[in-house]
Structure formats: structure tokens, C-alpha cells
């Protein structure tokens, strides 16, 4: 049961970046469209699950003093793998996400979960934790991306056109200031929801 709980924690109780306020840079930068958010989220999930698993396996071997260095080597290696795979099979997305793929390395969520969870818990729990937080992050990015895309361009997943020909896109939403304001409002709404539950 605890494995299941570790999984669901990331999906609601600690959903990044709303509850666990980490990883804001990619959230702001790539959520101009729903599919970009989805792609970024899945890439992050892959790195998070793999690094959580490996760090959990090695947790008793890695000496305390060099643990951060070891984590960075492990995380960076998985990020390079994602870079290579995306170039090979999802080139368009690779170009759109640009420098934010190498920057997964410094996404605080990944190092944060490694330090706070995977370095102390068995492998199954760590994988569940990685999957949960990864999917949570993916869902958040996709929702923010969809919201900004619908208002800013009038489409969803770049294909479905939602409004008639007279729709004037509110392009402010896909511009940088729109990213900050949109995410700020989302955080506020999440705060209201969680207060209502308490």
C-alpha cells in the first residue's frame, strides 16, 4: 500500500509545480502549447524515474560527502540519453523545447526527489515516487499549456481548432508576461482549493 501512496502523493498532495513549488523555469518557458508541455513533462518523468531508481539502488554504496556529485553525474547522463532519443525520434519537439532539454539537469524537482526520497527508500518506492511526481508535473504542464494555447492561439494540441473564424487570439497569453501571470493565477487557485479541503 505504501508504494501506491508514494505514487499518488506526487499526483495531488505534492503535485509539482503547484504544491511543491519547484521546476518553475520549464513550466513558464515551454507551456506555450499543450503538446510542448506534455513532451517536456514526459522527458522529465523519464529522467526522474531512472535517476530515482538508480540512486535508490546505489544508496548504500555512495558515501555521504560525494552524494550530490554522484547524483549530478547520474541525472546528467539520463538527460543526455533523453537528448539523443529526442533528436533521433522527436526532432521537431527537440527543436521547440530547445535549451530546456539540457536544463532538465538543473530542474530542482529531480535533485530534490533524489535527495529527499530516493537516497533513503527502497527501489520500488523510489520508482513509484518518481512516476507520481513525473506524471504530476506532466499533468500540470499540459493543463497550463492547454490553457495558454486555447486563449492565446485558439487551438488545442496544435490541431483542433476550437473557435470559429471570427476568434481573435489573445496572444498575450503565449508571450512571456502571460506565462508569469497565468502561472501566478493557477497557484492562487490551487491555494483556494487546498484551503477549502482543510
Amino acid at each position: 500500500m505504501s508504494v501506491w501512496k508514494d505514487f499518488t502523493d506526487g499526483l495531488w498532495k505534492d503535485i509539482p509545480p503547484f504544491r511543491l513549488v519547484l521546476g518553475l523555469c520549464p513550466t513558464l518557458a515551454v507551456t506555450t502549447a499543450a503538446d510542448n508541455g506534455l513532451g517536456m513533462g514526459l522527458a522529465t518523468t523519464f529522467v526522474l524515474v531512472c535517476s530515482n531508481a538508480l540512486i535508490s539502488i546505489l544508496r548504500k554504496l555512495i558515501p555521504k560527502k560525494v552524494r550530490i556529485a554522484s547524483y549530478i553525474v547520474i541525472i546528467a547522463s539520463f538527460v543526455v540519453m533523453v537528448e539523443l532519443f529526442m533528436q533521433a525520434y522527436f526532432y521537431r519537439l527537440y527543436i521547440i523545447l530547445g535549451i530546456f532539454i539540457p536544463l532538465i539537469v538543473v530542474n530542482c524537482i529531480i535533485l530534490g526527489r533524489a535527495e529527499a526520497f530516493a537516497s533513503k527508500r527502497p527501489i520500488l518506492n523510489s520508482i513509484a515516487d518518481g512516476l507520481g511526481h513525473g506524471f504530476g508535473f506532466t499533468i500540470s504542464l499540459t493543463i497550463v499549456g492547454a490553457f495558454r494555447e486555447i486563449l492565446g492561439a485558439g487551438t488545442l494540441f496544435s490541431k483542433i481548432t476550437l473557435f470559429g473564424p471570427h476568434f481573435m487570439p489573445f496572444s498575450f497569453m503565449v508571450k512571456p508576461p502571460g506565462a508569469f501571470i497565468c502561472l501566478g493565477l493557477f497557484l492562487g487557485i490551487m491555494n483556494i482549493i487546498s484551503r477549502g479541503r482543510v
Binding site: L58, I62, V66, A69, S70, V73, I74, S77, M81
Partner: peptide, 13 residues
């Protein structure tokens, strides 16, 4: 430990 981790990850990459 650091050397082994780096070597294994390097080889995989």
C-alpha cells in the same frame, strides 16, 4: 565510487 559511476554512465552513453 565516483570513478565507477562515471565510467559506467559514460559507457552506457
Amino acid at each position: 565510487v565516483l570513478t565507477v559511476i562515471s565510467t559506467v554512465m559514460g559507457a552506457t552513453l
